[in-house]
Design a protein around this nucleic acid. Structure first.
Ligand code: SF4
Ligand code: SF4
Lengths: 131, 131
DNA sequence: ATATTATAGATATTAAGAGTCTTTAATATC
DNA sequence: GATATTAAAGACTCTTAATATCTATAATAT
């Protein structure tokens, strides 16, 4: 079980956007070059982030992407959910009432996700900047 | 990101084997039928569990599988590792020194895995039995 | 009007998971 | 020893999801 590369790209992009001066947009060209990616592929990922309301996009000349003005305190989990969807790690098609196996798996997953929810991009970005 | 079906099958099989009387083997035929699976496919999963030392197999008539006599206190994590390998959820090919993104992802993963390590099959099996 | 940039859709490629079939080796029973 | 039973291993197919590219369209600044 592995997170997709798309999640990796999304996290890097978000941290980078966090470090931009207020109100300035960055184009997909630059974001892709930074990570050695094809712009069209990264574009698909950025569209997901946009639809999730984590970033804003402006088309046209001098356009690009910037962190959403309305959505503050973006967590790692927000980014992952935007890219991968909110599916559970463990899913059983049967769902017996009070299933003990599911209970364990779900609890473990919660432990992971609560950690990812508590970590904010802005904190990571600031730490990275101060290095 | 989802755990494979194989992990699901393995967990069910292990719980079932936990509930068998001491020293009695169960054949793949029965284990597969129980879960509505093809025996040959389940067989591949069981071989992984055997190689990981979680169960023991005996070929031939009256053979089959039983919980390992040497490996006690088998955890959920043991089963998952046996089936899926011990790969990390998040892997970056670059590995910058002291990477902050990796730090967060790894910590979250640890939180999940420590939970899975603390949950033992025997406890789940006994609870399920007493229902 | 023109250049720039995001969005969307179609399509191709790759990798992994899921599953089957067949052969071989080991064991118990008679 | 012969036969039936069962696990292990290898080759193979099928399906799905991730990865990626290409093209056309829509929106925006200059
Ligand atoms: S016991 Fe739980 S995991 Fe297993 S089939 Fe029932 S609901 Fe699904
Ligand atoms: S910052 Fe971390 S995750 Fe990103 S490329 Fe460097 S090591 Fe990899």
């Amino acid at each position: 079980m592995r997170y997709s590369n798309a999640t990796n790209y999304a996290l890097h992009t978000m941290v980078h956007l966090m470090l931009q001066p207020e109100r300035s947009s960055v184009g997909v060209q630059e974001l892709a070059q930074m990570q050695d990616l094809s712009p069209t592929y990264l574009s698909k990922i950025l569209t997901k982030l946009t639809k999730a309301g984590l970033i804003e996009s402006t088309p046209g000349a001098k356009g690009g992407y910037k962190i959403s003005r309305t959505k503050h305190n973006i967590s790692f989990l927000d980014v992952i959910y935007a890219v991968e969807g909110e599916t559970n790690f463990f899913e059983c098609s049967i769902h017996h009432e009070g299933c003990l196996i599911e209970n364990v798996m779900t609890q473990a997953e919660e432990n992971m996700k609560s950690e990812l929810k508590s970590k904010l991009l802005i904190d990571i970005a600031k730490k990275a900047e101060s290095k």
